[in-house]
Measured scan of single mutants.
Amino acid sequence: MDETGKELVLALYDYQEKSPREVTMKKGDILTLLNSTNKDWWKVEVKITVNGKTYERQGAVPAAYVKKL
């Protein structure tokens, strides 16, 4: 869990989004888990830093590609 009490997951593999509802992640990324009720796809929040600014993006990733921490 992070400092706000939200559950975290670890990306076990790289994943490139294939639709606007998904998010890209790299192996080793730590993501915030938002919903894991679907056994195949979990909704997560990814933090992306671009030019020193951090953005948050929500989307789905394959459940088999992440592990709860």
Rank of each mutant, 00 (worst) to 15 (best):
D2E: 13
E3S: 12
E3K: 13
E3D: 13
E3N: 14
T4Q: 12
T4G: 14
T4Y: 12
T4I: 12
T4W: 12
G5K: 14
K6V: 13
K6P: 14
E7H: 12
E7M: 11
L8F: 14
L8S: 07
V9T: 01
L10I: 15
A11G: 03
L12W: 04
L12S: 02
Y13Q: 12
Y13P: 01
D14V: 06
D14S: 07
Y15L: 02
Y15W: 09
Y15V: 01
Y15H: 02
Q16L: 12
Q16S: 10
E17D: 03
E17N: 06
K18S: 09
K18H: 07
K18T: 11
S19T: 10
P20E: 13
R21D: 15
R21Y: 14
R21S: 13
E22Y: 05
E22F: 05
V23S: 02
V23F: 10
M25P: 01
K26L: 07
K26Q: 09
K26W: 06
K27L: 04
K27R: 11
K27P: 03
G28C: 07
D29P: 02
D29K: 02
D29F: 05
I30V: 11
I30S: 01
L31N: 00
L31F: 07
L31G: 04
L31R: 00
T32F: 08
T32L: 14
L33D: 01
L34Q: 02
L34G: 01
S36C: 13
S36Y: 06
S36K: 08
N38E: 11
N38H: 11
K39E: 11
K39H: 10
D40H: 13
W42F: 06
W42C: 05
W42M: 02
K43Q: 15
E45I: 12
E45D: 02
V46A: 08
V46Q: 11
V46M: 09
V46Y: 08
I48S: 06
T49A: 07
T49R: 08
G52T: 03
G52R: 02
K53C: 12
T54K: 07
E56W: 15
R57F: 09
Q58R: 10
G59W: 07
G59K: 00
A60Q: 15
V61K: 00
V61I: 09
V61C: 06
P62Y: 06
P62C: 08
P62V: 05
A64F: 09
Y65C: 15
Y65W: 06
Y65K: 07
Y65F: 12
Y65P: 03
K67N: 04
K67Q: 13
K68L: 14
K68I: 14
K68F: 08
K68H: 07
L69E: 02
L69V: 09
